[in-house]
């Protein structure tokens, strides 16, 4: 029941959120399901984070790198941004997949999948002091060095779920990132 409700809400949300991305998803498409739309919704959220967070000025020739570790499927979904030619501050978005913390290269956003849970400390150390926004969708990551954690939250009637996120200000410290207050308005803040 909850899943079906989530599906209806997710379809509407994805349709609204992905329009800017040019990803037209019809909620009435045959076989469409809320669970199937969730990755695309997460991609839209990751892209929209770039609109409310300012990174230190980098070289305009260098792409805006979104790395993925511990979630190969997510890397595939994020490549939609690359295909659509999306840009952040005029820089094209480039998607990089990493097998482990040792492979990590400098990125602007690093999506940490659930499989990367064992490497979380290593990832934190490798990116410490760098302007890298750590985003994850695994519960508990927000208190362990991931700055933004995506999670699903039912509404007060329990009839539908929404994709929400929480922000850990401590994880943003010393990274040179400027987060808009509006992002805090719609997020849960980890204390």
């Amino acid at each position: 029941m909850a899943t079906a409700a989530w599906g209806r809400a997710a379809k509407r949300l994805v349709a609204a959120l992905l329009l800017p991305l040019g990803i037209l998803l019809s909620p009435a498409a045959p076989g469409a399901d809320g669970e199937e739309l969730l990755p695309a919704l997460k991609v839209a959220y990751v892209y929209n984070f770039t609109r409310f967070i300012r990174w230190p000025a980098g070289s305009p020739d260098r792409p805006f790198v979104v790395g993925v570790i511990g979630d190969a499927a997510m890397a595939g979904h994020l490549r939609a941004l690359e295909r659509e030619g999306k840009r952040v501050d005029g820089r094209p978005i480039a998607i990089r997949g990493f097998q482990g913390p040792d492979d990590l290269e400098p990125t602007d956003i690093l999506f940490v999948g659930g499989a990367a849970a064992p490497w979380l400390d290593a990832i934190r150390r490798r990116t410490a002091g760098k302007p890298t926004l750590l985003v994850g969708d695994t519960p508990g990551f927000a208190g362990r060095g991931v700055a933004i954690e995506l999670f699903r939250k039912p509404d007060i009637f329990g009839k539908s779920e929404r994709l929400r996120f929480r922000i850990d200000p401590a994880a943003l410290k010393d990274r040179g990132l400027t987060v808009s207050a509006q992002l805090y308005d719609v997020a849960e803040v980890v204390r």
Binding site: L13, A16, L17, N48, R162, L163, R164, Q182, D185, V186
Partner: peptide, 14 residues
């Protein structure tokens, strides 16, 4: 403008 994030991140309560 203050409601942009609410629109983008589907936060009607905000």
């Amino acid at each position: 403008e203050n409601s942009l994030s609410a629109l983008v991140f589907d936060a009607p309560d905000t």
